[in-house]
Nucleic acid binder design. Structure first.
Lengths: 365, 365
DNA sequence: ATAAATTTGTGCGTATGTATC
DNA sequence: GGATACATACGCACAAATTTA
């Protein structure tokens, strides 16, 4: 009869593994030194090293040069995947390609690849997306939250990410419930203020506002709009504010502006603050259809300084969006989070918007 | 001054890995024995074993007790990753976001994620990119080749993909050496013909052509241009053809058109066929700077029907590019390749371009 | 602040076992 | 059986990082 051959290193591996799984060796505990293990088990140091190598690869332990070998906190099956997930609401919606470009630029220089996902601003899609990503092997996440105005029902997924040691950076917006997570966004309140104050500065008083209601950006830009009006001593008129949802973005703002324009004789207005350049273009189109011209009759501001602002029939006065630089900043922040702890104050970055004046606003006559 | 520390086993690992990726060692090949490698590299057998251990773990080689060490056929046997790599030259360059959108749309419906990479139309970046992807776990690849006009020096990487069972779909262009690989592209020859024939049909005879020289699209559009001229009985005039490289795309076409425009009195021309809409916009700008207007003095055609075509100061007559549909078609083809064998005739799809007439071309007076 | 001790990382040499041809 | 090649195992030396005296 023949005995099963059991390599000594395998015996040692099994023994140590069961000690860890059994709780005898707890996470963060220091294991005996290689020499100590060699002596205790009556094997050579090389054999110990082989066993520890296997355990390291399996994720049960990690080593620190000069300090020792330690039981790891939680098991990451494989090593770093060098994959970073990037989740945005849309891929083509005008400034996202540039943001993604900025992210890709920085990350690929550091040997990372990008896993791209889009949610179409749907909460369920975002949740499904995160679940998928948790099953894959990613090292980090950059995400633009969907419908950031409403309560987030899947905070548990973000907690899970945190527990897995996968850092996460929010861009554009963030969730009110998770204020401590890293983010990079624009001061949209200030941006809305800048656009509106520019118009009041030009003497306009009846200023229409068109805002998106289902993300924090829209709500903040609206607040800036209201602040600027108050500062200029202009009463807030809810009838001049148009709210729209993502789904209706193609039609609703356009139609509402046409409705207001039809009543221009009875209830004139001087200017329109649009949520972004896309809306501004629709606004100008709607005005033209009703015989009003921009900027002669009505001044219009955009937001984001997209390609539309420059190529539009009227050069749009708009609020500059950092685009590539936002992407780069997000990527750099993520890289720092991957390497070391980053103090809270540096984990949350707010970029300052600035106004770009073109031809779509004119002094009131 | 301090020397970079390089462990010998790492040196050996790198060397062997690059031999495998470089094609010097091919799948199923037997590597030299451990002793032979030790002798050749002047290291101990232990060091060789360490290097081979790493390569084994990475999946590049496998060992058979008593037989030898072999280059592995398939990298990574760890099941489908549900990741598809998408490699394009640029991410933001005007129609790519839409193509990627189309791909993402289809693939995400089937539970796949997208790994995004860009090459900036650099061959070395493309090669580096493919090597990176081979080390990751991808199920398939959609790639827009870089500098597709020149001989591809890294066919072995594509062969490796094939041997690993990773299907690959080319979009936009393909390499002349690998005619049997699946692709989806536009009939660019036809597209160039359509644009040029439209101009000859309007009575234009001296037609400038601006083409990109470092991809097949440019060469094919040029051929279509030449075909249309011949068909109209117009002699080919090399002085009217401007070639440019990717690196010079921002300046060179613009400056060359200005140069031609400066000599307009002596050597007038009727129209310009531009490689794409971006170039067309630059062309129109150059013409304007020299006091020539489009379409009154000179007709201009674009290509791709990008957002520029519609938002440009003059509505561009251009050749429609399927964009999203191209992306969707590529994704669907890849899905089919992942499931089953696809007959050659269905693996290669050429989409028909069509002309979109706007305001940038006028009948010659 | 420095030196010594500890601990992991790299590398070599050797011996023996075992599977394949 | 013999040659070859991988697998396991031990011992030793020195380097590099860290902690301790």
């Amino acid at each position: 009869m023949q005995q099963e051959k059991k390599p000594k290193y395998e015996e040692l591996t099994r023994d140590l593994r069961s000690q860890i799984l059994g709780g005898a060796i707890r996470p963060k505990d220091k294991l005996p030194s290689e020499n100590a293990l060699a002596a205790r088990y009556g094997v050579s140091r090389q054999t110990v090293r082989k066993a520890l190598g296997i355990l390291t690869q399996e994720g049960y332990v990690y080593t620190e040069h000069g300090r020792g070998t330690f039981c790891s906190g939680l098991l990451k099956a494989c090593g770093p995947s060098k994959n970073i997930a990037v989740v945005t609401t849309y891929l083509t919606d005008y400034i996202f390609p540039q943001v993604i470009q900025g992210i890709e630029q920085v990350l690929s220089e550091h040997g990372y690849s990008i896993l791209l996902k889009s949610t179409k601003n749907s909460r369920t899609a975002e949740a499904r997306c995160l679940e998928e990503l948790l099953q894959k092997n990613i090292d980090g996440l950059i995400i633009e939250p969907s419908r950031s105005h409403i309560f987030c029902r899947h905070t548990h997924l973000y907690e899970m990410l945190e527990q897995c040691g996968i850092p996460c950076v929010f861009i554009q917006g963030n969730y009110a419930q998770m204020q401590e997570l890293p983010y990079i966004l624009l001061d949209d309140c200030r941006g809305g203020y800048l656009a509106t104050a520019h118009l009041t500065g030009l003497g306009h008083r009846r200023i229409v506002g068109v805002f998106k209601s289902d993300d924090v950006q829209g709500q903040k830009r609206h607040r800036g709009y209201a602040d600027a009006l108050r500062e200029a001593g202009i009463g807030y008129d809810a009838d001049l504010v148009i709210w729209y949802y993502t789904e209706d973005r193609r039609q609703h703002p356009y139609q509402e502006v046409r409705r207001l324009a039809k009543m221009y004789r009875q209830r004139p207005f001087d200017a329109v603050v649009a949520y972004n350049d896309q809306i501004a273009v629709d606004v100008i189109r709607a005005l033209l259809e009703e015989g009003l011209s921009c900027p002669a009759d009505v001044s219009v501001t955009g937001y984001d300084d997209s390609y539309l602002a420059a190529t539009c029939s009227v050069g749009l006065t708009t609020v500059a969006h950092p685009k590539e630089r936002l992407g780069e900043a997000a990527a750099n922040l993520l890289l720092r989070l991957l390497q070391a702890d980053v103090p809270l104050s540096e984990r949350q970055i707010v970029m300052e918007p600035r106004l770009i004046v073109r031809d779509s606003c004119k002094k009131r006559t």
